[in-house]
């Protein structure tokens, strides 16, 4: 559910077996001694890169919405978020 993929029964079975094999393969990682090692999230030396807080040109609503499957000219439009909205 975290992946937000609506899989059918066949996919569940197929992916289940494949992912099990992959997880089995990558589990050899557990044998590596990392007791004194810190984790690495990125390779660069850069930290907290900021830009000046000044306004810059931006896309604007029309271009930002130009690829939207549904929009009203100013907003992206989506379906019901709460189940009770479905009836309304």
């Amino acid at each position: 559910m975290l992946a937000r993929l609506g899989l059918d029964e066949g996919e569940r079975e197929r992916f289940g077996a494949q992912l099990e094999a992959i997880l089995d393969h990558i589990s050899k990682l557990q044998q590596v001694d990392t007791s004194d090692v810190s984790e690495m999230a990125q390779v660069g030396e850069l930290v907290n890169v900021m830009r000046d807080d000044v306004r810059e040109p931006c896309l604007g609503a029309e271009r930002a919405l130009s690829n939207a499957p549904a929009g009203d000219g100013r907003h992206f439009v989506v379906g019901a978020i709460q189940e009770n909205e479905l009836d309304g």
Binding site: N67, G79, L86
Partner: peptide, 20 residues
């Protein structure tokens, strides 16, 4: 915001179908 949408009245089901 962009790309494919597989329509469904409920947002969560739209996500699931679109991504599947």
């Amino acid at each position: 915001r962009f790309g494919l949408r597989v329509e469904h009245p409920a947002l969560i089901d739209m996500y699931l179908r679109t991504r599947d």
